[in-house]
Design a protein around this nucleic acid. Structure first.
Lengths: 223, 223
DNA sequence: GCAAAAGTGTTAACTATACACCCATGG
DNA sequence: CCATGGGTGTATAGTTAACACTTTTGC
């Protein structure tokens, strides 16, 4: 064993990039240009080469295929590694998946035209490979993550109203929350603080703007 | 991009196998026979070859290096995938890690003598590579897992007393639990049921034996 | 009868939930 | 003055946490 003529599986990465689009959770998909699944939407992904880390590869691939800089995403987290048998024409592939959270991301059409777009998670098109399951897995992870960390900051602008924050939570957990209970709880967690600024938007009372205490993922357990 | 002369990283697996030894959580380590870290203890791990899944590779490797059949472990779960740079003499390696839970596992000395042994997690020897961090990560995952699933069944015999169950929980979370609260809670979860058998062991009242409702990992959330 | 582990309830603190009205603004 | 979203408190139910004595057995 362990001889140097050993033949390894192909290593790939696939990325689930989330952002809020019109107050709904949306995921980045590209239209595939090659077989299999040509024309069908898929997560941006590609091959990892020897000498680059999976995270570096992901950054490179998402920039190349969707014109998105992962550095602009406030949270990047590894999800799971799938043994996707019979997916790659060259044989067995191991796919490392990541989740990224961003805001105000504008996908750019690249020269090789992969048609990157954000789709609301409750209105996804047909999805190639097992990527629908990966998206679902990422969504579950995100739901869970925002319940014990401040990670939702990465989906919001630096300054935000409590209503925007509540809407973001609701977009992720996909059910409505009680306004008074939500505010009581979030303020009690001491992960945000109010600023002296307000936000005016239409014919109603202006909203106080808040800011996260930190833009680093932090646990908010009861201990 | 995506040309067929692409060179992939090496893929490896590393396994964190837990069991209870004398009522303490213990992890399987082997003594390395080669450089680097010759003579130092490490997690059982090795190369994944094209055509086998990481789980198959892990099963093969743990059997080869420690004489342990993963099929005997009640829970096997993927943990995380590490980009271990500069670890493999042939270059960049991607290491997929798994956690397994078992009971009554006896490691076997194999022909190529890797000296497999279980060490209590609070008395580990010097550990090679970044494996100490992997063990800590696995321990955190296990702590968390037993709080929202019945996964601890995999560390216990089929029939067990409530005191044994409590001791198992305590071994994992590494702090003592209140006996009355523990029993109230565990019985309220309805994941175990009492049998008509008891266990006699020394000069005291015999203990009722219980059994898990299922030997499959199941969530026990409040919903 | 004594040592040793098994077994058993109550109270207080905290957390989660349900629920409805007034406020400040723009038009 | 009215439509719109911003902002606020209280009462109840449920959950968690602290805590000590009696029971059954072997020797």
């Amino acid at each position: 064993m362990m001889n140097t003529t050993y033949s390894s599986p192909i290593v790939t990465v696939d990325s689930v990039v989330f952002q809020l689009v019109q107050q709904k959770l949306a995921v980045l998909l590209i239209a595939r240009t090659n077989q299999p699944f040509a024309g069908i939407h898929a997560l941006p992904g590609g091959y990892v080469s020897a000498g680059e880390t999976t995270l570096t590869a992901m950054t490179r691939i998402v920039a190349a295929k969707a014109g998105i800089e992962l550095a602009d995403c406030g949270v990047v987290e590894q999800l799971y590694t799938f043994d996707t048998v019979a997916r790659d024409p060259r044989g067995h592939a191991v796919s490392v998946t990541y989740m990224a959270l961003g805001r105000n991301i504008m996908p750019q059409l690249r020269s090789d035209t992969h048609y990157p777009q954000f789709f609301p998670i409750d209105a996804l098109p047909e999805i190639a490979f097992d990527h629908a399951q990966i998206i679902q897995y990422a969504h579950e992870r995100l739901k869970s993550k925002i319940s014990y960390t401040n990670a939702i900051y990465a989906l919001l602008p630096e300054l935000f109203t409590l209503s925007q924050l509540q809407t973001a939570y609701e977009a992720v957990v996909s059910h409505p929350l009680d306004k008074r209970n939500f505010r009581k709880k979030i303020l009690g967690l001491e992960i945000i603080h109010e600023t002296d600024q307000t936000f005016r938007d239409g014919a109603h009372r202006p909203a106080r703007l808040y800011r996260f205490n930190t833009q680093v993922v932090t646990n908010i357990s009861s201990f």
